[in-house]
């Protein structure tokens, strides 16, 4: 039984991992991430890659929506910007270590362009601007054939360094997962800095934030641009993972998927981004397995996969908002408290 975590200086109070136990668990978790593709099969590795990409995008949306309180509905299309940039560059012989950051930066720049008009004013204007951007950019993906390949989309050569090609799920996992870990680590640390704290201040009470000297428009723009940058990063990895992208890869429903992920995981929580992304990646898989089971009885059940997924995503958003507004991260915290305090009750 642990009696308490006693902190004696400011540095320790600020630390991300505060106790030796946490550090050990974290090291074990990193070892697990390295071992996963070796012990898990093909399917687990595939899911691992997908989760990694979703975690980056979810962490980005959580910066914008969860920490700063700005709703973005068109997050998916920003992934698209990153993915198309990477696909185009890869097809023109640019190496991946240059293409991926370029995709992320371009998505961030697009985010600034969308954000400038809509973030000058208070209210839901960013939500509407991102909705508009979703349709306008999807249209550009479809019509700008010389760059985006039109409705057929683009195929992407595998990422390569020296003679080594990331051409299988197993290999590309070791491209995606380290980037995901660094991205999440960076987003966690962001909220120990002035910038991150300013985001939270704006979310909690914008008027007070302005009074204590935070340039609100600048920080809101920065928050949205950072979220877009994360989306672009995830999109670039998406391109190297699926190796083929079409305008249909980044629909409005994907943006709603990420909104569901941050709500289910926990708004304004880095752990929430991780838990939410894992949960939301697994939901469609479980649904598909259930429908496949049902299809043994009646083969017609297969057509219900995609509407069922939409219903479940929507119900998760509504249900978590009503019953568990702090999401899985809060449930996780309660479980941890239970064990930390056992045999006493909190």
């Amino acid at each position: 039984m642990r009696l308490g975590d006693f902190v004696t200086d400011y540095r320790a109070g600020e630390a991300v991992l505060r106790t030796p136990v946490q550090r050990v668990w974290f090291a074990a978790f990193l070892a697990f991430l390295v071992a996963l593709p070796f012990v898990g099969g093909q399917y687990i590795t595939f899911l691992g890659c997908l989760v990694g990409i979703h975690i980056i995008a979810t962490a980005g949306l959580n910066i914008t929506t969860g920490f700063t309180g700005l709703i973005s509905i068109g997050h998916a299309v920003l992934l698209g910007v990153g993915a198309y940039t990477v696909a185009w560059m890869a097809n023109n012989g640019v190496p991946f270590w240059l293409a991926i950051p370029s995709g992320a930066l371009l998505a961030g720049a697009v985010g600034i362009v969308i954000g400038i008009p809509s973030l000058r004013i208070k209210g839901l204007y960013l939500a509407v601007a991102t909705l508009a951007a979703q349709f306008v950019l999807s249209y550009i993906f479809r019509e700008w054939e010389s760059v985006t390949g039109g409705v057929r989309g683009l195929s992407v050569p595998p990422a390569q360094i020296g003679g080594f090609a990331f051409d299988s799920d197993f290999r590309v996992y070791f491209l995606i997962m380290p980037i995901a870990v660094v991205a999440v680590w960076a987003s966690r640390n962001l909220f120990r800095t002035r910038v991150g704290r300013a985001f939270v201040a704006i979310r909690d009470r914008d008027l007070s934030a302005e009074v204590i000297g935070i340039d609100i428009v600048r920080y809101k723009l920065m928050s949205f641009a950072l979220g877009a940058l994360y989306a672009g990063l995830a999109g670039g990895l998406w391109a190297y993972f699926f190796r083929s992208i079409t305008p249909e890869s980044f629909p409005l429903q994907l943006g709603i998927f990420y909104l569901a992920a941050i709500i289910v995981g926990g708004l304004g929580s880095t752990l929430g981004s991780i838990l939410g992304a894992i949960f939301m990646t697994l939901v469609p898989e479980v649904l598909r397995a259930m429908v496949n089971l049902a299809a043994i009885v009646s083969p017609a059940a297969v057509v219900y996969v995609s509407p069922l997924r939409e219903i479940v995503f929507g119900a998760l958003i509504v249900g978590f908002l009503i019953f568990e507004p702090h999401g899985l991260a809060e449930i996780w915290r309660r479980i941890r408290r239970f064990f930390a305090l056992w045999p006493f009750r909190s």
């Binding site: 509905i73 709603i256 909104l259 509407p307 939409e310 219903i311 995503f313 929507g314 119900a315 509504v318």
Partner: peptide, 9 residues
């Protein structure tokens, strides 16, 4: 937004 998704599905 969640409601829209439910109704569409």
């Amino acid at each position: 937004i969640g409601l829209a998704s439910i109704l569409h599905g």
